[in-house]
Design a binder for these strands. Structure first.
Length: 127
DNA sequence: CCCTTGACGGGCT
DNA sequence: GAGCCCGCCAAGG
């Protein structure tokens, strides 16, 4: 029968997209910020910016596994406008801003000041 | 299996 | 220059 020969093992490339996002995020140096789209583009999923954010959220949830949420400095990742759109997912609404300020990053009106100057592009900074 | 939501981005109006 | 709409990837109901 034409059993739908299920592919014995056509496991889609387990592109641990999440782990990959976490890794890139960890490479973001303190005092610098990057954007979801930049990470997504660096990973090949130029249009997967949203997925990047999802991965970061999962990262915080997996913080226990990572030992510490600081392992993934998600506060250094903002949207393309430099806005702290993910602040609502931190323990406190101001945690993200405070962490950035603790690194010398000025935040005004929920947005990174001199975002373009502090912007850290993985595709450019990383080999 | 289909529909909706979500830490986004880019294009058009 | 700001606002609106559509598109992408993944997960949950």
């Amino acid at each position: 029968m034409k059993t739908p020969a299920l592919p014995p093992a056509a496991p889609p490339p387990e592109r641990n997209f999440f782990a990959d996002v976490h890794a890139v995020t960890r490479l973001v140096p303190p005092g610098r910020v990057t954007s979801y789209g930049a990470i997504a583009h660096y990973l090949g999923a130029a249009r997967g910016a949203r997925t990047v954010g999802y991965a970061l959220m999962a990262a915080n949830l997996d913080a226990a596994t990572l030992r510490r949420e600081e392992a993934v400095p998600a506060h250094r990742v903002v949207n393309r406008l430099g806005q702290l759109t993910g602040r609502g997912h931190f323990p406190t609404p101001t945690a993200m801003q405070e962490r950035l300020e603790a690194e010398g990053v000025q935040v005004a009106d929920d947005a990174v000041v001199d975002f373009e100057k502090l912007f850290w592009n993985p595709a450019t900074e990383l080999p």
